[in-house]
């Protein structure tokens, strides 16, 4: 099985030859992977060099935290990749951006109002949780469509607070 894996912008052709051999850009590695105490912590032996990393999926990407460094990896098989390239890719910025509460907390500030133009990265809500004030930012350029929370309100995890179109 052949995959194209893009790590921090660098493309690798990764071919799984059999259970214990993987070719990366044609170079064959003897590998052994084991989940440590269940996922997502993995021990990988590559040519008998021992590595350990957390591997978890987030927003369609694989996050690999290894030796204190975070790698973002996009893993695609050849078919998927053809589909994505044909579709023009990057559909992420289309459609409304829904700002959801990443954790339960108290809304301490909403520096935007309905109808306001915002840029990607602008602060939409300041949420207090774990005794910290956290700035939650817009994921896209656009106009604030709905403001569903007000200052002083508590929100649950996953609750939609603001939408940007």
């Amino acid at each position: 099985m052949k995959y194209i894996t893009t790590v921090n912008g660098q493309e690798f052709e990764v071919e799984i030859l059999d259970e214990h051999r993987v070719a990366v850009n044609g170079e064959v590695y003897a590998v052994d992977i084991a989940a440590v105490s269940g996922r997502p912590l993995y021990s990988l032996l590559a040519n008998n060099h021992s590595f350990e990393g957390y591997v978890y999926a987030e927003e369609g990407l694989w996050q690999v935290l290894m030796g204190g460094t975070l790698y973002e990896a996009l893993v695609e098989d050849e078919q998927l990749r053809r589909l994505r390239l044909a579709g023009g890719g990057g559909g992420k910025e289309r459609g409304p951006f829904l700002l959801k509460a990443p954790m339960p907390g108290l809304v301490v500030a909403v520096p935007v109002t309905k109808g306001q133009e915002v840029k990607k990265g602008d602060v939409l809500v300041v949420l207090e949780s774990m005794k910290m004030q956290n700035e939650l930012k817009s994921g896209k350029d656009g106009k604030v469509e709905k403001v569903k929370v007000e200052v002083g309100q508590t929100v649950d995890q996953g609750q939609v607070m603001i939408s940007v179109v």
């Binding site: 894996t5 590559a46 690999v64």
Partner: peptide
């Protein structure tokens, strides 16, 4: 190595 790990998982 990160590519191998991500791909295998």
């Amino acid at each position: 190595i990160a590519a191998i790990l991500a791909t295998l998982v």
